[in-house]
Design a protein around this nucleic acid. Structure first.
Lengths: 200, 200
DNA sequence: GTCTATATGGCGATAGAC
DNA sequence: GTCTATCGCCATATAGAC
């Protein structure tokens, strides 16, 4: 790297078009990989299965991601969508978390992936453990900030932990038994919290 | 070791002692397998790892359990300990569920195994899915019966679901982050439920 | 201890875009 | 012609089963 860095313009080797196509197919691969990991877990996922889903051979896939682990990391890196902030405050903001329970079928794959990853984390998958720990901190911070804008309870740590764990538990329950009344259960929790926070 | 085989008189069927020893080692194997499955999940668990833990070779292990799956099923079949019934009623009985949160280090392996199995179930492991579904029914029934002996709320399905999901979520949270205030969170839930059930 | 199945990962070759 | 994307083939490793 002695030559002056990317000076003025240096297309030279790869055209803009190539770069875009490469990025596009990488995105496609990561999307497919996320689905396959969600359906089978890490260990049981084969590169062939992922490649087939995007219409590639195994080697074609390995050109973009040199190893299974690198692909896994790419999936993890992309799986961080900051939840939309509706601006609601206090308990009402918490009530909106009910939307995360999974009843929107569109969100099935990412939800499944998260819970599979949490299982992998408990089973000793280091990369999954790191991702899960980071995500847990984000979720708790989010809940805390939502709560903080409304009535501020004293035992906020317990409240945050209770909400985070309950949402997660209800999500998992729904994945295992879609007929379970998870929405009423969450509504009940919010009602209970509301009664507590407003009488304080 | 050329000595005549067991010709002289061969117990013919299998002595009582042999049967007992076989049962004992099988128990030992299942215990070891449960630990290894809990630490690594199903796919990443090797028969060698299980065999080594009980001081056997892979062949020796396969003599008692002809396949990895048969061993897995044996682990699942044994993993059903009817929780002790203390005779408490209503909310107090629920409060006792806090003991299931995992802070007793002795219960780390079974707790971890359960959550790993739930992850496997979501990831499409059929045997794990069956076990998890059955266990979920047991847990819900248990909570329902505990609650039923005390004050009987109208929305009992939601209450049962809420309790089951929260305990499970807190357990998982504790496995991922042992520093999380899971006990206070559970106490908070019980307090909230108590207030609701007593004012009804 | 051996056999077999399967999965990862690398090497070489080919087709196509600029 | 050079670089990229893809494929076919193989070498290695590892696990399950007998």
């Amino acid at each position: 790297m002695i030559e002056q860095q990317p000076p003025a313009r240096r297309p030279r080797h790869r055209s803009q078009r190539q770069v875009e196509e490469s990025a596009a197919i990488k995105t496609e691969i990561v999307t497919a990989a996320a689905a396959v990991f969600a359906e089978n877990g890490y260990a049981r996922t084969t590169l062939d299965a992922v490649a087939k889903r995007v219409g590639l051979g195994r080697t074609g896939l390995l050109h973009h991601f040199p190893s299974k682990e690198s692909l896994f990391h790419a999936v993890l890196d992309r799986e961080r969508e900051p939840a939309a902030d509706t601006g609601a405050t206090g308990v009402e903001a918490i009530r909106e978390l009910g939307a995360l329970l999974g009843h929107g079928t569109a969100s099935l794959t990412p939800l499944r992936l998260i819970h599979v990853l949490e299982g992998e984390a408990i089973a000793g998958n280091e990369a999954a453990a790191r991702y899960v720990a980071e995500r847990l901190d984000e979720v708790r911070g989010e809940i805390r900030s939502k709560l903080g804008r409304g009535a501020g309870p004293r035992d906020s740590d317990a409240v945050v932990t209770l909400i985070a764990a309950t949402v997660n538990g209800l999500q998992k329950l729904w994945l295992i038994d879609p007929d379970a009344p998870t929405a009423p259960a969450f509504d009940l929790l919010v009602d209970l919290l509301e009664a507590r926070l407003t009488t304080d």
